[in-house]
Design a protein around this nucleic acid. Structure first.
Lengths: 296, 296
DNA sequence: GAAAATATGTTATATTTCTTTCAAACTGTC
DNA sequence: GACAGTTTGAAAGAAATATAACATATTTTC
């Protein structure tokens, strides 16, 4: 027995006992509100006894009703329209006992979806517009998010000038804060071990009237009142470590948005930057920018 | 006090105590998975005590945490929380507009799956083992992959010492190449605008007998004969830009693998590094490393 | 139609989850 | 720096939720 919760429920409908069938079909029908149910509440709704619910869950391979709910949480459901074959295959192999990689994968996919959902919010559009139009953009990230900020800066630099990585060392800290309030904007990447620096910077930026966007994880509790937009990115998958990948996706989507916003006016610049890079690192090849033309 | 759960949470953010604010913002960020949480689980994630959660819920007008969840049910009861539903929803909404967000998402997910597949190959296991056991690890990435390399180094440093970011400027270029052949190993992150540097480095490393792993995109054509393992990561989704997210996932998975390989012998080190980071950046909190304990 | 097998419910117990109480820690004020 | 007020967490108790054991009902098999 394997697969998603939905899968298992459907499977067992065929040859289950009366009560089990009742429970299964109720669950399928009300999948969305299952997490709110308790074994008892569900039992009374289906008009079976409490133990029946527990037993049923065990019969389809979960430890308990609670355990089933947990799986639901991580379940990405069946998506026959997606790359499901490979995914399912991976799941199967994993369930056979290799390890719990695929669970992590499911969670990562969930995170990715969340990021794409963010990209549809009004805040998102506002930030994209700002990143395209504000004369100077400053980006920062401390500790482990330092690299993230760097990536974002590198990419954005292809599209526009005056994109700076704010550094403790460099004097651009001051440069940011002394620029006029509608001359600059700030993007802060943060995660987990929130550094005091990020917070201080956000405070100062607010004082200086500089619009600030915070990209962080769900554990961040400061910020909501200090910055203009907070983008919360899931970072916990059940790897030992937190993942920065979703944040990278977010950064990519932002850059993508800016590109669309700026339109084709940037192509010239991109060629130029490409050539610059080439000169300094010696790559010789087509000079049409990283992936221009992939837009479909 | 009235309105939806989300409303109330937002409202209280303004003038709540520190712990309350933390709880509220976490809830807001994770609204979709709140139904799966229990007061205790939430408490531990936000790093407050259990009673605080209960009290908080009461302070914003619910009888208990459970009561809040029930209200949530009414608020978002028929809102999709299952990833599959959310995907569908996203698809529906984006199909209306002309931007092909959801298509890009699908591709990204496919890329993620590919990365997880890589993590099951023998090469992968070999690299993980090497990263765990070789006395010194060198990592490099040029241009846009510079940040990627940085992230990888930062994370790996939590687990072991002698992890170095190879830089054009720093003398560690030489340090790498003069170390004995089984004293060091090298990881190169590359993508698209393959720099001559990466290639030269790979050549020299080979001459010096240093095992080298190349992480790159499908367009890379050198390398197969110059390095010991090539991990090819999809980077093209139909965003204007290439995505580094999948590569970030790969880096994460590698670090995760190394952690598993090293076992719990590294916890001590991790505490130490954590404290170091804290001292220099001023974060004050638990000193148990970024996400220790999330392993299930 | 009776015996065996299976399925279900009742009651009692164990476990989890939540709340209360109270003391310690923190905050701001004089 | 001491005081009052607030916030927070630890421990213990109360409520809920889930499991186990056993008894009853139902179905299956012969």
């Amino acid at each position: 027995m394997s697969g998603s919760v939905r899968q298992r429920l459907s499977d067992c409908l065929a040859n289950a006992s009366k009560a089990d069938k009742a429970v299964a079909s109720f669950m399928l029908a009300q999948l969305n509100s299952i997490p709110f149910e308790t074994a008892a509440s569900l039992a009374s709704k289906v008009e079976v006894s409490e133990p029946t619910v527990g037993r049923f869950c065990r019969s389809i391979g979960y430890k308990s009703f609670k355990n089933l709910k947990n799986h639901l949480k991580q379940d990405i459901g069946d998506r026959p329209w997606l790359i499901s074959d490979r995914l399912r295959d991976l799941q199967r192999r994993t369930q056979a006992g290799e390890d719990q990689l695929s669970r992590g994968l499911e969670l990562e996919i969930g995170g990715l979806v969340a990021v794409y959902e963010l990209a549809q919010t009004p805040e998102w559009k506002r930030v994209v517009k700002r990143l395209a139009e504000t004369p100077a953009v400053f980006v920062t990230g401390f500790q482990t998010e330092r690299g993230m900020a760097q990536i974002f800066v590198n990419q954005l630099q292809y599209l526009r000038d005056r994109v700076h990585l704010v550094d403790l060392a460099g004097g651009n800290f001051a440069e940011l804060l002394t620029s006029g309030s509608n001359q600059s904007c700030l993007v802060i990447f943060e995660a987990r071990r929130y550094s005091r620096m990020a917070r201080l910077l956000a405070q100062d930026a607010r004082k200086a009237g500089i619009p600030t966007t915070l990209v962080t994880d769900p554990f961040c509790d400061w910020g909501r009142d200090l910055v203009d937009e907070v983008f919360v990115v899931p970072t916990e998958f059940n790897l030992f470590w937190e993942s920065t990948a979703q944040m990278a996706s977010l950064a990519n989507l932002l850059v993508n948005g800016v590109f669309i916003e700026l339109g084709h006016t940037v192509e010239e610049r991109m060629d130029y930057i490409s050539r610059l890079y080439s000169r300094f690192t010696g790559y010789v090849g087509d000079s049409s920018g990283p992936s221009v033309g992939h837009q479909t």
